[in-house]
């Protein structure tokens, strides 16, 4: 069987899918980061064999009977093999027990509907109850239009759960990957104790085409890149993919030390 070849958008080099996956979806030619599926991301950063999935059975329904939504959902489930755009669960990273979520841009551009909101909310509640930190690999086109205002309200619902978890003295590390936009940027992507971003990722609130249409201005080079967000003070650090597991493990260790010593009262 012929190998699937994938072309790098940056340098044009074609690489076999299997080789690319082995290389952490980094272009062997120019070092450009390709998008990763949620499962690939989890496999990359978690300690081997420690991941336990939560709420994998939750599936979106077409609550508003929105046109063409059933077909879109069906197609997304078929192409990704996932039930929705986020995978949540428990794992160890660098030996530290962690609650973890990873969003998947292959599933309707990781838009946030009620299932995404519910799974992430449940994860933060689980983490608060079990005194665990949360690491979230984020990407999203924003709130899922097909679920109307119910999607929008997930921003508030998840934010409340993140706040609850934070008030319990626990650590949350969002890692912003390509692309992180819209309602997700305007909620749990920006609510971390430490906010990391992958080099080159698009991170912003408004879409670039919308900004150009609204203002009639040409966007500056590198606008809304991870580097732009770092420069403007909205992310703490750029996270190289190859060493990401090690760096995350280190941050988790530093931010759960007090918890291990039992310095916080049980809430």
């Amino acid at each position: 069987m012929a190998e699937t070849m994938i072309r790098c958008k940056k340098c044009g080099q074609e690489t076999a899918d299997a080789q690319l996956l082995k290389n952490g979806r980094i272009c062997p030619c120019c070092g450009n980061y390709f998008r990763m599926s949620a499962r690939e991301r989890i496999a990359l950063v978690t300690d081997h064999g420690t991941f336990r999935e939560h709420d994998g059975e939750l599936k979106s329904r077409n609550i508003l009977r929105f046109p063409e939504y059933d077909e879109k959902l069906e197609k997304a489930v078929e192409t990704t093999g996932e039930n929705d755009a986020v995978i949540t669960g428990y794992a160890k990273i660098g030996g530290v027990p962690t609650a973890l979520f990873a969003m998947d841009s292959n599933f309707m551009m990781a838009s946030m509907g009620t299932v995404v909101g519910e799974k992430i909310t449940r994860l933060f509640e689980y983490a608060a109850e079990n005194r665990l930190p949360v690491v979230g690999f984020i990407c999203s086109g924003g709130a899922r239009m097909q679920e109307g205002v119910l999607s929008l309200m997930q921003m508030a619902k998840v934010s409340a759960a993140v706040r609850w978890h934070s008030d319990a003295g626990l650590f949350y590390l969002p890692v912003l990957t390509d692309p992180t936009t819209g309602g997700v940027t305007a909620s749990y992507a920006m609510e971390g104790d430490i906010i990391a971003a992958e080099p080159g990722a698009l991170i912003g609130f408004a879409g670039q085409r919308v900004i150009e249409q609204t203002t009639g201005e040409k966007l500056p080079k590198g606008f809304q890149s991870a580097e732009f967000q770092l420069e403007h003070g909205f992310v703490d650090l750029l996270l190289e993919r190859r060493s990401s597991g090690t760096v995350i493990g280190r941050l988790l260790t530093a931010n759960t030390a007090a918890e291990r010593r039992g310095m916080y009262e049980r809430v």
Partner: peptide
């Protein structure tokens, strides 16, 4: 919320 370059630079999402 305003969709503009300055709004993004000053962290509309944040």
């Amino acid at each position: 919320a305003y969709c503009g370059i300055g709004a993004e630079e000053r962290g509309q999402g944040q």
